[in-house]
Design a protein around this nucleic acid. Structure first.
Lengths: 141, 141
DNA sequence: TATTTTTAGTTGTCTAGCTAACTATTTTTA
DNA sequence: TAAAAATAGTTAGCTAGACAACTAAAAATA
C-alpha cells in the first residue's frame, strides 16, 4: 500500500510542512513564501552574494533562483545590483524592509519549526537526518 | 545552518527522489510523470474509482487530481466515463495501453525504489516512517 | 415538494521546480 | 590575440500544488 511507502511519506511530510508554514505566515499577514524566506536568509547570511551561490546552498537550479530573487526584489526585501568585478554576476543584499521582515519572522519561523518537531528526541532528529542523507547519497550516484 | 535543518532535508530528499525517478523513466522513453504514475496505480487498484477517492489516497486536492486525470486520459492510459449512479462523479478505469504501461513499469519502479533504499535496514525503514508520521501529526493539529 | 445545503468536478491564477535554449560576459587555449 | 569554451543569469514551456470561485447534480430539510 502506498501509505506504507517511504517515498510517499517523505513527499507528503514535505508538503504538509510547507502548507502548515505557509498558513502560519498568511495568518500573520506576511507576504512571502517559505521558499522565498529561505532565499532571503541565504542573502542575509552572505551579503553581496550572487545567485549561483544561493542555488548551491538551497540545491535549486538557476531559473528557480532567478524568479524567486525577482519576487523578493519586487516586494522590496532585497536590492539587486550588478557586480563590479564581474558584470555577469548580480550582487544581492537585504533592504531595510527586508531586515525588518527577517527580524519579525524569526519567532514565527521558530514557532513553525518547534510545532513540527514536538516530542522528537535529539536522537530521533539525528537519526532521521542520517537516514535521509543515506537515501540522497544512494540516489546521487 | 540550513543543511542541518530537518525540514530542509526532508524537502530536498523528496525532490531528489522525484528527480531521480523522473530521469529513469525518461531514460526508458516512458511518457509519464512519477505523480501521474501514482494516480494510475490507484485507479488500477480500484477500478471505476472516482477522483475524490484518488485525492484521499494520495492526499492531494481536487484540482490537482482533475488535471492529472486529464493528462492520463489525453495519453490514453485511462478511460473516463460518467458514473451511472451519480452523474456528478466520474468513473475511471485503465485502458489496454494503460495496463501494458503498468506492466512494463513494475520492474522499473521497483528498481528506483531499491536504488534509494540501498543499505537501509528494515529497522531504519520503520523508524523513518514513524518519525515522519510524528511530524505530520504534530502539524495536523 | 420546494428550497437549501452538500458534494464532485472544473477552471483560473499564482508559485515552485525542471529542462532547454538563449544572451552576454569572462576565461581558456591554440 | 583571436577563437573556443565556460560561466551567470534570463526567458519560455511544461507539470504539480495550493487557493478561490464556479457549475451541476444529489441529498437534506423545512
Amino acid at each position: 500500500m502506498i501509505h506504507n511507502n517511504i517515498y510517499f511519506q517523505i513527499e507528503l511530510t514535505a508538503r504538509k510542512i510547507r502548507q502548515y508554514g505557509q498558513n502560519v505566515l498568511r495568518s500573520h499577514g506576511i507576504d512571502i513564501t517559505i521558499e522565498q524566506w529561505l532565499v532571503l536568509n541565504v542573502i542575509n547570511d552572505n551579503e553581496t552574494t550572487n545567485q549561483i551561490f544561493i542555488g548551491e546552498k538551497l540545491v535549486k537550479d538557476k531559473p528557480t533562483i532567478s524568479r524567486m530573487v525577482n519576487q523578493l526584489g519586487k516586494k522590496g526585501f532585497i536590492i539587486k545590483t550588478s557586480s563590479s568585478s564581474d558584470s555577469r554576476q548580480v550582487s544581492l543584499s537585504i533592504s531595510k524592509k527586508g531586515k525588518t521582515l527577517i527580524h519579525n519572522l524569526q519567532p514565527i519561523i521558530e514557532g513553525i519549526r518547534l510545532k513540527g518537531l514536538q516530542e522528537l528526541s535529539e536522537k530521533e532528529s539525528q537519526h532521521i537526518k542520517s537516514i535521509l542523507n543515506k537515501i540522497q547519497k544512494n540516489l546521487d550516484t
